[in-house]
Computed example of a mutant assay.
Amino acid sequence: MKGQWTLIISLALALIVAIFAVVNVDAVSVNYLFGEAEIPLILVILGSVLVGGVIVAGVSVFRFFSLNRQVKLLNNELQAVRKEKEGKKEEQKKQVTASTVGQDAGE
């Protein structure tokens, strides 16, 4: 259900940006570091949204891989703890078995 709401909100925001961009079609002067150009405002708006989306996607991918690496490390640590715990249980079983065998032999 969360994925559906995310999609609906994303589509609504995309529609708002598209309407905003289509309404603003006048040419504007854009100053670059190396020059100046007359560009329709719709292209400036859509370009800005595209660059913002690429930046957000890049940060999200970085975060995803960082969290994925952390999950793998924690899973490895959990498996090591489980193996250690199983080893202690086996050792306790051996001690119980040895003590019962010693008691049987002493009788």
Rank of each mutant, 00 (worst) to 15 (best):
G35I: 11
L73F: 02
L46C: 04
I8N: 13
Q79R: 07
S66Y: 06
A18R: 13
G87K: 11
K85F: 11
L73H: 12
A37S: 07
G53C: 04
N68R: 05
V61Q: 07
A14T: 15
G35Y: 06
G87Y: 06
K83G: 01
E77P: 01
K72C: 07
Q79G: 09
R63E: 07
N31Q: 08
V59W: 02
S29F: 00
E38D: 03
G52M: 10
L15G: 14
S66Q: 08
E84Y: 04
F65D: 03
S10Q: 15
L74T: 08
G52D: 10
A21P: 02
Y32K: 12
L11V: 15
N31I: 04
L33M: 14
G47T: 04
D26P: 00
D26H: 08
I42H: 04
A80G: 09
L33D: 10
L78E: 07
I19A: 10
N24E: 03
G35L: 13
Q79L: 08
L67Y: 03
D26F: 06
A80M: 06
L50K: 09
V54E: 11
I8F: 12
A57C: 11
A57I: 09
G87F: 07
I39W: 00
K85Y: 11
G58A: 01
Q79M: 12
G58Q: 06
A18N: 13
D26A: 08
L43R: 00
N76A: 07
F20R: 10
F34T: 15
I19R: 12
S48Y: 03
R82T: 09
V54C: 11
S60G: 08
I42M: 10
G58M: 04
N68P: 03
K88Y: 09
N24V: 04
E36G: 06
I42T: 04
N31G: 02
N68D: 03
I55A: 00
